[in-house]
């Protein structure tokens, strides 16, 4: 039986830099050149002050586990149970992801645990940013 793949993103012109970054093993965020607000998801203007003067920069990849559920539902490309998580990046923004390299249990997945980005290639075009626990 062919293994179904997880749904993959179709990048748009405004998000191209993010997906180019993950392909190169970088987590790219944007910062407003006027008010210095750091934001995600990508867009070519600042969601706080509406300035179009914004820059892309490489984020640290450090994050904390902010919240999650552990899904027991069948899903293409996943073996339940698996965590669907939201992490808070060191730079401020939050993003949805999966937690790699650890058991998918409430005992292991403690809120606020430190994490770091890892990059998982899906296709030649698409690499996803996942997060794994930082070894204490």
């Amino acid at each position: 039986m062919a293994e179904l793949k997880r749904p993959l993103p179709h990048p748009t012109p405004e998000t191209q830099h993010f997906w180019e970054g993950t392909r190169q093993g970088e987590l790219r965020l944007q910062r407003c050149d006027d008010c210095r607000h750091v934001y995600f998801p990508p867009r070519p203007f600042c969601p706080k002050c509406a300035s179009r003067k914004v820059s892309v920069f490489k984020a640290s990849g450090r994050a904390k586990l902010y919240s999650y559920v552990i899904s027991h539902r069948p899903a293409p490309g996943f073996t339940p149970p698996y965590a669907i998580a939201v992490v808070e990046l060191a730079e401020g923004p939050r993003m949805m992801t999966n937690i790699a390299g650890c058991a998918q249990t409430p005992e292991v997945l403690a809120l606020d645990m430190p994490l770091e980005a890892v990059f998982e290639k899906q296709t030649d075009d698409i690499t996803l940013a996942l997060f794994k626990p930082v070894k204490g």
């Binding site: 993103p9 179709h10 998000t15 993003m95 949805m96 992801t97």
Partner: peptide
């Protein structure tokens, strides 16, 4: 898959409202 949720949430295994 080109919407923001399609790009930045669906790839992580969201399977409808319960998840």
């Amino acid at each position: 898959p080109a919407s923001l949720a399609g790009q930045f949430e669906a790839p992580f295994g969201t399977m409808g409202p319960p998840t």
